[in-house]
Design a protein around this nucleic acid. Structure first.
Length: 297
DNA sequence: AATGCACCCAACCGCGCATCG
DNA sequence: CCGATGCGCGGTTGGGTGCAT
């Protein structure tokens, strides 16, 4: 038994919206609002459309202050950072970009950003010369498996400038981190490998150090956090050095610091990383701070 | 100029979740 | 508590368009 259809499929119009339909819908909502019931709305105004279709049309095109196309480099950075951190939660990503819709961002990611990012990633990995291992099937949500396409143009990403005063929007690393915390992230100075525990064994992390979170990150998060499409199977939890930018579903990654040293997620986890180099990278501290997220089942 | 191909994007589909009676 | 209903979301599709051959 399947779910009942939301409308009578035989009696609703599908396909592109006409200007007349747009005008009807916009005019009604402008003067009456949605009435809290999208399903009933098209009948009220005499549209042969599914309520869900009306809702989509309104949210993506007709409502005020919608922007289309022309994504700025800053928006690219935010989308990439968030996608790498929280995955394909387009509505959350869209909420941080005023005037953008989740559908628009999703399309933009699928058609352009993903390819650019993959191109960048491939170049970095091939220059490193490390043999890659095909990922197991069904491994994760981020990148397709299979033969690599021809390298697309590289994405030119600039670091997001740190701004301590920006609170309302999501355009700096501190606010990115705050959002990730809100989504269930935790930050810890403990190294789970040293403690002999897996991140899943840490139900409670120390209190969040807000001051530390407000420190600028090291370099461009995209450079630090390029998820690998054909590394080992997806680990359960992201563990990133120092930066504090973490995600529930960030997979194995390649981290490159300003000095050109690279660390692979599996190297970190397996303990084969050169901690001296890592400590130099992160500022000569005695211990490598780990950032762990546990908002992940 | 014609054809094929790749890309883009608006729209649809189905599922999970929240709410309500 | 439970089933019905509606909403919101992410994945996918298919038509339009531009470019390469």
């Amino acid at each position: 038994m399947g779910r009942a259809p939301c409308c009578d499929k035989a009696n609703v119009k599908k396909g592109p919206w006409s200007p007349e339909e747009d005008a009807k819908l916009k005019s009604y909502i402008d003067s009456h609002g949605t009435g809290g019931n999208w399903i009933a709305l098209p009948q009220k105004i005499g549209l042969k459309r599914c309520g869900k279709s009306c809702r989509l049309r309104w949210l993506n095109y007709l409502r005020p202050n919608i922007k289309h196309g022309g994504f700025s480099e800053e928006e690219d950075n935010i989308i990439c950072s968030l996608y790498i951190s929280i995955g394909s939660r387009w509505s959350i990503i869209a909420a941080q970009l005023p005037g953008r819709t989740d559908n628009d961002i999703k399309n933009y990611w699928n058609t352009r950003l993903k390819k650019k990012l993959l191109g960048k990633q491939r170049k970095e990995k091939s220059s490193r010369g490390k043999q890659t291992v095909p990922r197991s099937s069904g491994g994760g949500p981020y990148f397709q498996t299979g033969p690599p396409p021809p390298p697309p143009p590289l994405l030119s990403l600039q670091p997001i400038p740190y701004s301590s005063g920006e609170e309302a929007r999501f355009n700096n690393h501190a606010s990115i981190r705050r959002l990730l915390m809100k989504l269930g992230g935790r930050f810890s100075s403990q190294d789970p490998n040293n403690s002999g525990l897996t991140p899943d064994d840490h139900p409670h992390y120390p209190a969040v150090d807000e001051e530390a979170l407000l420190q600028p990150m090291y370099g461009d998060p995209i450079d630090q956090l390029i998820a690998s499409s054909d590394q080992t199977p997806m680990p359960d939890v992201a563990v990133l050095p120092h930066s504090g930018l973490v995600g529930a579903e960030v997979s194995c990654g390649v981290y490159e610091n300003p000095q050109g040293l690279e660390f692979f997620y599996d190297d970190l986890v397996n303990g084969s990383v050169d901690w001296g180099e890592m400590n130099q990278w992160i500022g000569g501290q005695n211990e490598v701070p780990w950032s762990i997220i546990n908002g992940h089942s």
